Simulated assay, not measured.
Amino acid sequence: MQDPTSKRLKATLEQWRILQAVVDHGGYSKAAEALNKSQSSLNHAVTKLQHQMGVALLEVKGRKAYLTNAGEVMLRRSRLLTQSAFELEQLADNLCQGWEPEITLYAEIIYPRERLYRALQAFLPQSRGSRIKLLDSVITGTSDAIIKKQADIVITGQLPKGYLGQPLINVHLVPCISPLHPLSQQSTVDVKELMQELQVVIKDTAITPNESLGWLKSEQRLTVSNFHEAVSLVSQGIGFAWFPKHFVASQLKQKQLQMLPLKQGKSRTSMTHLVVPDETRIGPGASTFVNCLLAEHNLESDAFYDSNKEPIA
């Protein structure tokens, strides 16, 4: 395949833009007015374009010019070309203003995803083409993302020592089993009994996990990468697991799962926080996304960051 950079282009973006204007405005006269150019210059540009391409793009019938079949195909492709060029120039302008080409977000898996998705929906029309890298994280892995400044924005359930964050929402974690599990027949379950059972756990995303965090007292463990896998296993009667209550609400309602009747510690609560690991380097794109997340929780944007990139003191 020939390298496209080794061959000189036959036509210019301006010629394609003129062709589009002639078609969109229904002729050379109105297109000339819209582009603030003379009608003869537009006619010359389109004639030259057809000659350069070696393809008839327009055909004249009476006093009007109509697209040929080939012209229709070329016009559609040219719109993609000019739109891409416009977006490229817009990206350059955004970068000059400090707008990030990519925003990295780490989100602890216990955080309700429907809230995150609504914040994303609100942000995308304002994103100016910035790519979003959304990564799930678990416990120590989330803390690492903050400490090692691996992300622009982090939603964490565990604030590392020395860091502050904006509280978002309390997440209630409940121990669950299947109605098929032998423990489901007991009226109460002692923690010592639970320690003898198989626990399904979610793999910590850190390279060096901190096993002092969370409830990991069972000797028998089955480790999976996400809550969806854990729900599938536990609903089949394989072990027990701690789940965010919002995540298993439908399974509990449909009696595919049931909460363990523990004598003590029937649930755990974790407050999720919004953290910007490096406040001195937050860009306008990340700042805008932060404000969308705060709005999702009915928090004022100036409770954390303003929309002009600077962190509030």
Score class of each variant (00 low, 15 high):
Lys61Ser: 07
Asp93Cys: 09
Lys7Ser: 14
Thr269Tyr: 07
Lys266Asn: 13
Pro101Val: 01
Gln39Glu: 09
Trp242His: 11
Asn170Val: 12
Asn308Ala: 15
Thr205Ser: 15
Pro284Lys: 11
Leu262Arg: 12
Leu183Gln: 06
Trp242Arg: 02
Ser307Leu: 08
Pro125Ala: 07
Asp302Lys: 10
Ser250Phe: 08
Leu19Gly: 04
Gln150Glu: 12
Gln20Lys: 12
Phe289Ile: 01
Lys161Gly: 00
Glu193Cys: 05
Arg77Asn: 15
Glu193Gly: 08
Ser127Gln: 08
Gln90Met: 15
Gly283Ile: 00
Ala92Met: 13
Ser127Thr: 02
Thr156Asp: 08
Val23Asn: 12
Ser178Asn: 12
Glu279Leu: 03
Leu95Gln: 12
Gly27Trp: 01
Ala230Tyr: 01
Ala107Lys: 07
Glu14Asn: 10
Ile202Glu: 03
Tyr106Asp: 04
Lys245Pro: 07
Ala122Glu: 13
Ser78Cys: 09
Ser78Pro: 05
Ala45His: 06
Pro244Leu: 02
Thr104Glu: 04
Gln220Ser: 11
Phe123Asp: 03
Phe243Ser: 04
Ala303Thr: 11
Asn308Gln: 03
Ala249Trp: 06
Pro160Trp: 09
Leu58Gln: 05
Ala45Thr: 06
Gly165Thr: 01
Ala21Ile: 00
Ser143Asp: 02
Ser187Ala: 15
Leu180Met: 05
Arg113Phe: 11
Leu95Pro: 15
Ser143Cys: 09
Phe240Arg: 07
Glu33Ala: 11
Leu262Trp: 02
Asn43Ser: 13
Cys96Asp: 15
Lys64Pro: 11
Met259Cys: 14
Ser187Phe: 15
Ala145Ser: 14
Tyr117Pro: 01
Leu294Asp: 01
Met53Glu: 09
Asn43Ala: 04
Glu211Ile: 12
Ser270Arg: 10
Leu19Thr: 08
Gln2Tyr: 11
Tyr111Gln: 10
Glu296Gln: 08
Arg221Ile: 01
Lys10Ser: 07
His297Trp: 06
Gln254Arg: 05
Ser225Arg: 04
Ser232Val: 12
Ser235Ala: 05
Leu81Asn: 13
Val201Tyr: 12
Thr47His: 15
Val46Leu: 02
Lys7Val: 12
Gly165Val: 05
Ala151Cys: 05
Asn298Lys: 15
Glu102Gly: 03
Asp3Thr: 12
Val46Phe: 03
Asp278Ser: 03
Gly26Gln: 06
Tyr305Cys: 06
Ile177Cys: 06
Tyr117Gln: 04
Gln50Asp: 13
Thr288Asn: 00
Ser307Asp: 05
Arg76Asn: 14
Leu198Phe: 07
Cys96Gly: 14
Ser130Arg: 01
Pro244Thr: 02
Ser130Tyr: 02
Ser218Arg: 03
Pro179Arg: 14
Ala151Ile: 07
Ser235Trp: 02
Thr269Trp: 04
Val174Trp: 06
Ser187Ile: 14
Pro175Thr: 06
Gly237Leu: 03
Gln121His: 15
Leu299Asn: 04
Ser212Val: 05
Thr104Ala: 12
Arg221Glu: 10
Ile177Arg: 08
Thr47Glu: 14
Asn69Lys: 14
Arg79Asn: 12
Ser187Pro: 12
Tyr305Trp: 11
Ala92Tyr: 13
Pro112Ser: 00
Leu42Ile: 10
Leu105Ala: 07
Asp152Leu: 03
Glu279Arg: 15
Val138Phe: 00
Arg131Leu: 09
Ser270Lys: 09
Ile147Asn: 07
Asp136His: 11
Leu75Trp: 13
Tyr163Ala: 11
Ala145Arg: 01
Lys61Gln: 13
Phe243Val: 13
His181Lys: 02
Phe304Leu: 02
